[in-house]
Design a protein around this nucleic acid. Structure first.
Lengths: 126, 126
DNA sequence: TTAACATATGAACAGATATTCATATGTTAC
DNA sequence: GTAACATATGAATATCTGTTCATATGTTAA
């Protein structure tokens, strides 16, 4: 709460996450930060699905979905198993599930607050 | 676990999040998916900071930081208060904190697994 | 072998985005 | 008023990213 004009720095950088943790986690969020991939992930919340189905559900080309599945694999967000001609994809672990749930909570609370509160009052477009 | 070749679709789309929830949450993740913004957020995990300090800590120009703060404000990830010449920024709520922690867990577990396991075995570059 | 299906991937292109530069706004002290 | 400081922002630009198209790989069935 103090506000010394000349030396306003008060960050305790010793508690900061390691540089690689920041880089890796921002990379992870970047992967989640795409509509198509998010739709794929949400579809995989409840089911194991093959590429063909994923493409149909998110209404994208097989190629686009396959490209994005590669991104999701590299981020360790999905697993897959081969079975004949199909490749079946599932979410990799529960972190993903929980992160998605948290994001939904955040978004929904924000939508509630947007009608009533006056915090900051900045964030408009234009 | 069934693998009917002709009708492989088995997604129960009734449980899917609403379209706006998917759009909004992917937008939220997109905001978190940038190194500079992540470094700013991690710095704000423990302290209330002014723009000048944030710029110094993440080693970016005042302008760049200010532009990114705008993005963080619009995503409701930070709050701010004016005090004289300074504007002090803090994290908006605990969702952010928890999401960051989860992401850290995910990347750290993944880094552990990368040395030993053989799951999938795909995700390489090139 | 061929044909049909399922998935993966490289190249190219269009659209998005982060930074820089210059400048505007706003505050404090004189 | 001026000067110095703190922050915000528009425009330009270089870089990144997602999709499409064409094609390659791999599986199954004949």
């Amino acid at each position: 709460m103090k506000t010394n004009q000349d030396e306003c720095l008060k960050a305790d950088q010793t508690q900061l996450p390691a540089e690689y943790e920041i880089m890796d986690s921002s990379e992870l969020f970047k992967v989640l930060g795409d509509q198509t991939r998010m739709r794929m992930i949400c579809t995989l919340l409840h089911d194991e699905l093959c590429v063909h189905d994923l493409a149909r559900i998110v209404n994208m080309s097989q190629s686009a979905v396959s490209h994005q599945l590669r991104v999701l694999r590299q981020a360790h967000l999905v697993r897959y198993r081969r079975d004949g001609k199909h490749t079946w994809y599932t979410l990799a672990d529960d972190h993903v599930r929980v992160m998605v749930e948290l994001a939904m909570e955040h978004v929904n609370e924000r939508n509630l607050n947007d009608t009533s509160n006056g915090n900051g009052g900045d964030d408009h477009d234009g």
